[in-house]
């Protein structure tokens, strides 16, 4: 990057470090932080949407829908999440390929599950084998996002289901007394009021989501853990910047990154909680009213 980095073997000290930290691979490493933040930014709303749908389904009057919603919420209980992460990535991948296979190769006669192999016709490969490398990476990232959304959606559904039940019954009854339909009370009364009850659970979930992002590594995405291992490993003199095993330092960096993320989130959540409690008939809202804010 810098002009004086032309010949790494001739420099030392801080100059060497400046050159070392600005190599192309290190920029890949810095980009992978963006990958993690992108994952968080996409997954959080999608998981919330999944959770909302799950909670609404679990409250439904219609029995099959209610069972579906409650089954979804109960799905994640009692089973380590990492099992879901490992399971869904393969299951989704094979499921998509199977569907494409059914659509594109209707006259394929060979069995798809042949002994130890899962074989679909070449046209059904997703993404196709001729696709550029970036598309494959994007597809892997997309699968990871969907997996995170499904697993965390179940947690969010659990939280939102509880929050919907926590809204005082009298509020709903008032809505009914005004002649609102059940859909109207849901939209105008229940949903606006439930967030203050949902916030503690959701902020806890956000913390858990942050701390789950290193699992991206297990899903085969080139994330910060991948690059920390790659860059930190011993580099012999065959490399431009030889160094001993520095993985400890890279992982310390990641640790600091996560601690910072947690600390910042805690601050933001505390602010948000104070904001949402404003004017609410809860203990926190009452305390604010008495303090004259």
């Amino acid at each position: 990057m810098f002009a004086f980095c032309e010949d790494p073997s001739s420099i030392d000290g801080l100059t060497w470090l400046a050159c070392y930290l600005t190599t192309g691979k290190h920029f890949d490493f810095y980009w992978s932080f963006i990958t993690v933040l992108t994952l968080l930014a996409i997954t959080a709303p999608v998981a919330l949407a999944f959770g909302f749908a799950g909670a609404v389904a679990a409250r439904s009057q219609f029995l099959p829908l209610r069972l579906l919603g409650q089954g979804y919420v109960a799905m994640v209980r009692g089973v380590p999440d990492i099992v879901f992460f490992l399971f869904f990535v393969i299951a989704l991948d094979q499921g998509i390929e199977w569907l494409v296979h059914q659509a594109r190769c209707p006259d394929w006669t060979e069995p798809i599950r042949n002994g130890l192999e899962f074989r679909v016709c070449p046209e059904a490969k997703v993404p196709s084998s001729r696709a550029p490398q970036t598309l494959h990476q994007l597809y892997g990232f997309g699968l990871a996002v969907v997996t995170f959304a499904i697993v965390f959606g179940a947690f969010a559904a659990n939280v939102l289901y509880g929050a919907m039940r926590a809204v005082p019954r009298a509020q709903i009854e008032t809505g009914e007394a005004y002649g609102m339909t059940s859909g109207q009370t849901f939209r105008r009364i229940l949903v606006p009021q439930m967030w203050v009850y949902a916030l503690p659970g959701l902020s806890n979930l956000w913390m858990i989501l942050i701390k789950a992002t290193p699992l991206l590594f297990l899903l085969g995405v080139q994330d910060i853990v991948y690059w920390a291992r790659e860059l930190g490993g011993t580099k012999t003199s065959a490399y431009a910047y030889p160094h001993p095993d520095w993985r400890v330092w890279y992982f310390l960096g990641l640790l600091v990154f996560y601690l910072l993320m947690t600390a910042v989130s805690e601050r933001v959540m505390a602010r948000l909680s104070a904001r949402l409690s404003h004017g609410q008939a809860t203990l926190a809202g009452e305390t604010q009213r008495k303090a004259g804010r």
Binding site: P214, L215, D245, V248, F251, L252, L255, L259, A263
Partner: peptide, 21 residues
């Protein structure tokens, strides 16, 4: 704060690399 604020996954990695050193 240290152990609740960071992922267990990273803690495992960090501990292993430290023990190896």
């Amino acid at each position: 704060f240290l152990f609740r604020g960071s992922p267990l996954f990273i803690q495992f990695f960090l501990a292993y690399e430290t023990f190896v050193l």
